[in-house]
Write a protein that binds this DNA or RNA. Sequence first.
DNA 1: GCTACTTTCGGAACATGTTCGAAAACTCCT
DNA 2: AGGAGTTTTCGAACATGTTCCGAAAGTAGC
Lengths: 219, 219
Amino acid sequence: MQGRTGRPPRTSREEILAAARALVDRDGWDKLTIRRLAGELGVGATTLYHHLRDKQDLLVQLLDHYAEQIPRPELPPDPRERIIVAAITMHDSLAGWPRIAELLTADDLIGRSALWMVDAMVGGAMDCGCTPEQAVDVYRGIWYYTVGEITVRAHAARRRATDERPVHRDVVYRSLDGAELPALAAVAQDWPRWTTKDTYRQGLRAFVSGMLAELTGAG
Amino acid sequence: MQGRTGRPPRTSREEILAAARALVDRDGWDKLTIRRLAGELGVGATTLYHHLRDKQDLLVQLLDHYAEQIPRPELPPDPRERIIVAAITMHDSLAGWPRIAELLTADDLIGRSALWMVDAMVGGAMDCGCTPEQAVDVYRGIWYYTVGEITVRAHAARRRATDERPVHRDVVYRSLDGAELPALAAVAQDWPRWTTKDTYRQGLRAFVSGMLAELTGAG
DNA sequence: GCTACTTTCGGAACATGTTCGAAAACTCCT
DNA sequence: AGGAGTTTTCGAACATGTTCCGAAAGTAGC
């Protein structure tokens, strides 16, 4: 139990995270910069780099803290429904997080506090007759689908909010060549409306059904 | 047909894109910066902003040019297989592109030259009995799944390449509580190995099967 | 030729994330 | 007390994307 050596720390990781949360609550996500956060704490900017690897690390920590507070829904007894409920909880929690798209590129995003969702999905798949390996495949597919949905959707929302120009895709679709791209020409009119629908749940159910049917033998 | 007015341009969008491609081919993606590209062209850095909205715009243009060169595979007559083949072509093309994860957050990524893939998927779904709206839903689900897979995978590869630390997720999984998270404890050993498998095709088939079964009436 | 007008150019400046290296502040050992 | 070792702090500096604004360089009308 020798006392620790070296210069005593002036701030701690916990303090930094708490200050970051307070700063975000007060001034918004745009104001969360390394320098401003350091100023808030009364330390030099570079000091933070002794407690955090980089800014992404900071954001991941904040998300982790947030994940602890996700209300844990009652999981239904039916294993297939358990997968669905856990996936939807994961999706909705992440979708409510600002700037989530920047973080979802990190694969080790899931801290201990959110592992119960992963466990529910993997366990549900095994209870549906999957081998452990197949269950992991099911979860990974759900994770990919969820990450993609949130990423694309978050960006689209941001685009609508900050950009006044028309969406490039919409312009392209309006001038389609019906002879070369008949299917797109047929849906071009309604494309903008249809692509704003929320189809996450529908797609999720389809994916889970398809995977379970393939893995455990259809019929 | 009055001649154009104003100071004559010293460089053009085309020249910039060509120089960017040459720069990337010669020095790699890390060296593609606004200042360096401008220096290569012999113009001021800020001049580029008269031809490009921002750097992301530049990257999207480069990707678009690349998309034109994607070899167009023969699409099978079976509509369901047509969806699969088009999706796999799209996925493999995007997956081969460096830094793709930064760009996939843009939803209007698809230029005219790549629309035949979207058309094949939407058309295939309609030929499978979907309504146009349902066909768009099928395509969107595929797009989400594809974006997610590529994003997560690209980041994992980058992490492996640049980072010597162990993956956080692996560390967490190694110290799991078997009583609280039984399913994860059961798969923890094999998790790293299983998650490096390429399951894109399997998941894609599952998703398409599930969607078509739900939409067109199972059985 | 002269004056508008228009378009492009580019230097200065700013904010930001991040690295480097040296100084500071503490404990431990002799 | 005094050095050795260790950890933390932080100012300076760098690279980068981006905005601002005035200067440059043309055309059109008179």
